[in-house]
Computed example of a mutant assay.
Amino acid sequence: MSAHGDVDLGHTVAGWTGTAIGLTGLAVTGLAVIAVSLPLALLGAGILAVAAAATWVLHLLGWGKPSGVRPPEEWSWKVRDRAARHGHRDCLGCRMAGRRPTAAVAPGPVPLPEPTTAAVAVTTTAH
């Protein structure tokens, strides 16, 4: 059990990669502010754009995770999401890529058995 309890924090290859590239971009941008350098600031902004693109592409390749809770056997960052190619429900990244999950087909009406009437034995008794 972790310090956060028994929950899935969404540690994925896409998340870690995007975070690492993004932190590099922020460091370069911070250095640009200190050095008052427009080219360095533009480089930092470019690295941040690469971070967003890399995270998105990895998510679409199945190295991200859908929104919501996953079963414990899928919590490892090494587990690839096989359903990603069809799109995740309520996922902006999947919608931007044109992946819309197929709506679950509502089950048709289930035919009910014909009502049976209990045969009531009517006995006539003569009085």
Rank of each mutant, 00 (worst) to 15 (best):
D81P: 10
R80F: 10
D90E: 10
L61G: 10
H86D: 09
G62H: 01
H59T: 13
R82K: 00
W63A: 02
L61K: 08
P71C: 00
K65V: 10
D90Y: 13
G62Y: 03
G64E: 03
E74T: 08
R82G: 03
G62F: 02
V57D: 12
W63S: 00
V57L: 10
C91E: 00
P66H: 03
K65T: 14
R89C: 12
H59V: 05
E74H: 11
R85Q: 06
A83R: 14
G68H: 08
D90I: 07
W56H: 14
K78V: 10
K78I: 12
R85M: 14
L61E: 08
H88I: 06
V69W: 01
H86R: 11
W63K: 04
S67W: 02
H86I: 02
H59S: 14
P66Q: 03
G62T: 09
V69E: 03
S76M: 04
W56V: 07
E74K: 15
G62W: 03
H86E: 12
R80E: 03
W56G: 10
G68D: 09
H86P: 02
E74M: 15
S67V: 09
S76C: 01
R85H: 15
E73V: 01
V79G: 09
G68L: 13
S67Y: 04
C91F: 07
G64L: 12
K65W: 07
G68A: 07
W77G: 03
P71Y: 06
W75N: 05
W56D: 06
S67I: 08
L58Y: 04
L61D: 07
V79Q: 13
H88F: 15
C91V: 00
L61I: 01
V79Y: 13
G87C: 05
R89V: 14
P66V: 03
H88M: 06
L58T: 02
S76D: 11
W77S: 00
R85C: 10
R89E: 15
W77I: 03
